[in-house]
């Protein structure tokens, strides 16, 4: 999967010009320059090799090995006897793709990542706009906005679970005493479909809750990105529009928003990828129960609870392939606008 190049932050940075060769004393410079180029090349390889080795051994090789595992019958029990050369077959893929629940998990993953991404970016946009104009203490408020993003995921999920607890959670307490709910809501263990105004959304209460959690936890990232981009919009543009009689909403619609679009496009890709791959949040909140089993949690279930390593690997590969296809399609559709970033 190649999610790099112009869409990632790396591609968007301006590289410093390469160190220019010294040009003062031309005759000696020629010799010292070629010596320096050679020295640079050697030093370059030497300095990058520790990282290259560790990334190769701990990331690239394992990924290749996943392919090997996915085509073999590997279980936790026969792990010690399995080698790289074994009986390859497509059985794992067949079993995984036709197993009950896989399609559901895939749909859940999609719903979770699309809605989670939308929630995070929407909330991030609101926060960025609300904190745009300076006021006293804005720095502190900004820092506070980032806390959900930096806090340990285990602590954040635990406190949410406690707040949403049907017996003594604070939300259900006030929901039943102040808001007049008839019964406490089991936010994290209810597979019941959410149906506002009688419209069945085919989304369980739990799935909605984990989506909201994802929005809460990730909006600071969007907020940071959008704020940084907003600061780069020259004031003169909006001032000119004000003089021309544009209202506040018009200035947002025709001046600020177009400037933000490339950033929003990049943000969408980043957040989508990370939400799509997310394991921690859902595993910790619901354990994958009541309509929240995403593929990543299912992979874990196959790996640890069933001990079926081959099937887990096959499933993880399918997940990565689908993600790669989605991201590529997105880049093909919207790639143009991102070149600007």
């Amino acid at each position: 999967m190649s999610v790099s190049g112009s869409t990632t932050p790396a591609g968007s940075t301006v590289r410093a010009p390469d160190p220019a060769p010294p040009e003062r004393r031309p005759r000696r410079a020629h010799r010292s320059r070629s010596a320096r180029v050679r020295e640079d090349r050697r030093a370059g390889y030497m300095l990058i090799s520790p990282t290259a080795v560790i990334v190769f051994v701990m990331v690239v090789l394992p990924i290749l090995w996943t392919f090997s595992l996915a085509f073999q019958d590997v279980r936790l029990l026969n792990l010690r006897t399995t080698g790289v050369i074994g009986a390859y077959s497509l059985d794992n893929f067949k079993a995984v793709l036709t197993s009950p629940g896989f399609l559901d998990a895939l749909v859940t993953t999609l719903v979770y990542s699309v809605c989670g991404t939308a929630c995070a970016i929407g909330l991030g946009m609101i926060a960025a706009l609300a904190l745009r104009a300076p006021f006293r203490g804005r720095g502190v408020v900004r820092a506070c906005m980032l806390i959900p993003y930096v806090a340990p995921v285990v602590a954040a999920t635990f406190v949410w679970k406690t707040m949403l607890n049907p017996q003594f959670g604070i939300l259900n307490h006030y929901g039943t005493t102040l808001l007049g709910w008839k019964d406490p809501i089991a936010f994290l263990s209810s597979a019941q479909s959410v149906s506002p105004f009688g419209i069945d959304l085919h989304v369980s209460t739990s799935l909605l809750t984990v989506v909201l959690f994802e929005g809460w936890r990730s909006f600071p990232f969007a907020f940071l990105f959008i704020t940084a981009r907003m600061q780069a919009i020259p004031d003169s543009l909006e001032e000119a529009a004000t003089v021309d009689g544009a209202t506040l909403t018009e200035r947002f619609r025709y001046i600020v928003l177009p400037q933000l679009l490339p950033t929003l496009a990049v943000l969408t890709v980043l957040r989508f990828i990370w939400t799509f791959n997310n394991f921690d949040d859902i595993y910790l909140l619901t354990g994958g129960g009541s309509g929240t089993q995403v593929v990543a949690v299912r992979v874990y279930d196959y790996l640890i609870n069933r001990g079926d390593i081959g099937a887990a690997a096959a499933q993880a590969l399918v997940l990565a392939a689908i993600l790669a296809i989605l991201v590529t399609a997105y880049l093909k559709l919207f790639g143009r606008s991102e070149e600007v970033v």
């Binding site: 190049g5 990331v59 996943t66 990543a296 990565a320």
Partner: peptide
């Protein structure tokens, strides 16, 4: 090399987890 390294950052952790667990 930096593109490859950054690609790592977007890889599903759960996919890496399997071979590393086995290894």
């Amino acid at each position: 090399i930096s593109a490859v390294f950054l690609g790592v950052y977007f890889f599903p952790a759960i996919l890496l987890a399997i071979p590393l667990f086995v290894f």
